[in-house]
Design a protein around this nucleic acid. Structure first.
Lengths: 207, 207
DNA sequence: GTCTATATTTCGATAGAC
DNA sequence: GTCTATCGAAATATAGAC
């Protein structure tokens, strides 16, 4: 599969592919796909459905993407960009301090890009299948890197579990943020989550 | 769809359908499905694949289940049984104390039935699609009930977020428990998780 | 309870016109 | 860049023999 297709994103010469709509067709496809993949799942969403929403036919999508999986990968890479940045703020060490630094960044990004994170959670099977079927040369997955850090045997078991719980807590809360926590402002939600992370990664916690 | 098919689970008269193998064919189908749905996802797993593993053909499955979705529903109900029990230990009130009681039960059940929980997490889109397409008369979903409790406006926002984080922490840790935390005994893991839950649901936490 | 064989449908993907 | 038309593959599901 060709992830980055040699597609003329701006054949008319406009900078970011801003076409008739302000967003390139490619981006509009991704936006609709994100919405449908999140609500129905990747497999239950057909290319015809995506095309219908955009007002053209299935075949047109193939001008912008080499395959359906290519759309999935593009969305995955969108998320990956945010994750990579947060990961780079952390070293490779497994200290609670650096983990807290990672989550601090992640909380803000999740709240700003929550649709992307929720999509990612609801389609884990499809995305991991993607990683299996391709030889992701040089594409180190976020999940793998997190696992690597959490596997560090030199860190006490309790600490590592606390680290896993911290990220689980943030992700878990995010899933309710749309509807159940809809009335809580993002700022406040972020503050609460940072507090949770801090309490989980502090020596005295957990008994 | 007929969720509970009128199938002769024990046509030869044996109590729990124990056939040639000690488990009824229906249960064996569910076990293989659980394994494949978890590793590959529901959509990427074909009935042929399940049948092959069991040594017979696809058509035989239709004797035991009315449809592929019926298998998914049966597995969902397996989990639902455990969740229901834990939920009943909690009232309908949204106090942190009752929430802690819920999670206490849930931790043990998750550790014992972790395959079932992981399956559920990796196939959320498919399962929710199931809920949409059927008129689940009387089938109140666990997720819905949790949302209802977390929506209780009479409870402070911070407390509700902490409750969401607590369940997220437990579920999040569970996902690493297979490989990354494989060397940690279940007893110890359970204790750590109970500690995490307690710290999250205590007044002083979170700053 | 399991088999063979087949019906039916849906979808991803391609070719080529415009 | 989008269209029409179509191919081919795969999967669910059914019918009926044994």
């Amino acid at each position: 599969m060709t992830v980055a297709q040699d597609v003329p994103s701006a054949p008319t010469g406009d900078p970011a592919g801003a076409g008739t709509d302000g967003a390139s067709t490619r981006e509009r496809i991704l936006d609709i796909a994100l919405e449908l993949f999140s609500s129905q799942g990747y497999d239950k969403t057909s290319l015809r459905e995506i095309a219908d929403r955009l007002g053209f036919t299935k075949a047109a999508i193939y001008y912008h993407f080499a395959s359906k999986a290519d759309i999935l990968m593009a969305l995955h890479l969108r998320l990956h960009e945010f994750g990579r940045e947060a990961l780079d703020a952390m070293g490779d060490d497994a200290s609670p301090a650096s983990w807290a630094r990672l989550l601090d960044r992640l909380i803000d990004q999740m709240l700003q890009q929550r649709a992307l994170f929720i999509f990612h959670e609801r389609n884990r099977a499809a995305i991991e299948e993607l990683h299996r079927s391709e030889h992701d040369a040089g594409h180190e997955d976020i999940q793998d890197r997190l696992r690597k850090v959490l596997s560090d045997g030199s860190v006490p078991a309790e600490t590592r579990v606390h680290m896993a719980c911290a990220i689980g807590a943030v992700v878990g809360a995010l899933e309710f943020s749309g509807d159940v926590f809809g009335s809580i402002p993002d700022d406040q939600l972020g503050d609460i989550l940072r507090g949770v992370v801090a309490s989980l990664l502090t020596e005295s916690s957990g008994g």
